[in-house]
């Protein structure tokens, strides 16, 4: 189990970071997902851990997102501060490019990270699970607890949005 978690923790962290744009929150989410997996499913076959972990991680991210939305609604109700509208807008910007990274192709990762962070959660999940995790449509649907057609829809929309946002930078390289 330790080896398995060691193999997935970094990608899980990246995925949580895209969803929360906050390092602390992302670490909490990853730890929560790991704890749940070990506590409930350590006795399962090792080949089941991957799909189970993806499912748990996406659930924890969704739960975080829902809590943030509720929290922000209450804060908006009591506050006139417009910056509290979107948790992604108010989160600390973790994607800062060094001067070297801003040159050449390395600048693209900053654009990509920002574009991915701006995606709606379900589109973001579908896209990252398909590309970064390399899951097929069926496995992605299992992780996101939705239908395969939903996955295809989310993925397609994510790709369209990313293409539009990155088009300028991509064409120049």
């Amino acid at each position: 189990m330790d080896d398995f978690l060691k193999g997935v923790e970094k990608r899980a962290f990246k995925m949580a970071l895209f969803a929360t744009s906050n390092t602390e929150e992302a670490l909490d989410i990853v730890q929560d997902a790991m704890t749940r997996l070990v506590k409930k499913y350590a006795d399962r076959n090792a080949d089941e851990w991957g799909p189970l972990f993806h499912r748990i991680l996406q659930s924890v991210i969704r739960d975080w997102y829902r809590k943030q939305k509720v929290r922000n609604r209450w804060q908006m109700f009591w506050s006139t501060d417009e910056s509290l509208e979107n948790p992604v807008d108010t989160a600390t910007d973790t994607y800062t490019a060094t001067p070297d990274q801003q040159l050449g192709n390395e600048y693209a990762i900053v654009e990509i990270n920002q574009a991915l962070s701006d995606l709606p959660l379900r589109q973001q999940q579908a896209f990252l699970l398909r590309t970064m995790e390399g899951l097929d449509t069926k496995s992605t649907a299992n992780a996101m607890q939705c239908s395969q057609s939903s996955v295809k829809t989310h993925y397609s929309r994510a790709l369209s949005t990313l293409r539009h946002k990155l088009e300028t930078h991509y064409e120049s390289h």
Partner: peptide, 15 residues
């Protein structure tokens, strides 16, 4: 990375 390692160990111990 260090915090992820700590989180992993903590999860294993807690469970």
């Amino acid at each position: 990375v260090a915090r992820l390692q700590a989180a992993r160990k903590s999860a294993l111990e807690y469970a």
